[in-house]
Write a protein that binds this DNA or RNA. Structure first.
Lengths: 185, 185
DNA sequence: ATTGCTTATGCAATAAATTGCATTTGATCA
DNA sequence: TGATCAAATGCAATTTATTGCATAAGCAAT
């Protein structure tokens, strides 16, 4: 399961609790792999079972105890082995495109509104990514190796959002002509 | 469930059997929503239960019988209702990016090989899409409305693959410098 | 005081996806 | 004549994911 390795990957740099990981899945790796806290806790239990990670209970003043999970040597080895295995291209799963695919069933104006909304969502996400790029990855050539790898995944996010934005623009323009015509008639 | 509506969408133009649908999911809508025959048959049973589709048994000479499923009025209405509901941006789920994210754990050369492989996969897919565009969507402005909608979803596929290709190129170049350095040393 | 938020974890039930197997009929090929 | 492939459908078991709920402890604000 990929989630397994996404978690291991997040534990490479430093140990984290289930709660921490849940947060991490909101940023960094979460930009290309989502997981809920339920999935994470279940998976952590399994990983501990396999001894790929080790838990350390941390008593905290105030907060409830937390379990800090640390990548074990076996876990690190498993991760390394997984990384070099070839993988498939990610299958696309996109609701919006299904809707557009049979868009002729509903009002074009309605669809255009939804496209405009998505345009804005993508623009916002792009802005977030560009901000991260500026703040954390200035002069990418000078970064240490590990940061370079993080950087290129961010670049993928940026390009992806730019692509969507461009498509939304193109499509909105293309379909707007359609509305104009039906108003004329 | 989105699969529900993906199937309904495929039945808009003409009735199809489970087997036909499985094929359709390899092309057209399958470019942005995948489904196995198991999922499809199960979902067809449910949809018939709900009366969103109606089956008609077709005796064939030679082949086993097939059940042709036709979209009902209720089904069509349900589809229309779904289309105009706003939806989320598709969450990205990409194994390759997780691997790259912690790429420093393995040999850079190995990673570059995998990136090159993906570059080729994307190139191939792009070629398929471009071919479809040329063959089925010449002069897009002149297409009837329904075809225009199909067309713009193909455009999204094209742009998506182009984006990936560009990222692979950028990344391979960026990381190649790294290998060059380590060879020098 | 009580309401609500954040940190922190998890159970239980349901829903969905995946995987392996199984069947029927004919066509094709060696 | 036996093997295998394509069309066509489906059951059963397992694995994953989702959803709703639950707890516990402190902090902040009204």
């Amino acid at each position: 399961m990929t989630l397994t390795y996404a978690i291991l990957a997040l534990l490479v740099d430093f140990p984290q609790s289930g709660y921490d990981l849940t947060k991490s899945f909101a940023g960094s790796i979460g930009f290309f792999w989502k997981a809920t806290h339920q999935q994470i806790y279940r998976e952590l239990a399994r990983l501990e079972d396999k001894q790929w990670i080790h838990a350390e209970a941390i008593a905290q003043d105030g907060r409830p105890d937390k379990k800090l999970y640390r990548l074990s040597e076996t876990g690190r080895a498993a991760l390394m082995k997984w990384i070099v295995e070839p993988c498939e291209m990610a299958p696309v799963k996109d609701e919006l495109l299904i809707k557009v695919f049979v868009g002729e069933l509903v009002s074009c104006t309605k669809l255009l509104q939804e496209l405009e909304r998505h345009r804005q969502l993508h623009q916002k996400k792009l802005a977030t990514y560009l901000d991260l790029e500026q703040r954390f990855f200035p002069q990418p050539e000078l970064l240490p190796l590990a940061r370079k790898y993080r950087y290129v995944t961010l670049r993928q996010g940026i390009r992806y959002e730019q692509e969507w934005l461009a498509w939304c623009d193109e499509t909105i323009q293309f379909l707007s002509a359609e509305v104009a015509v039906s108003v004329e008639a």
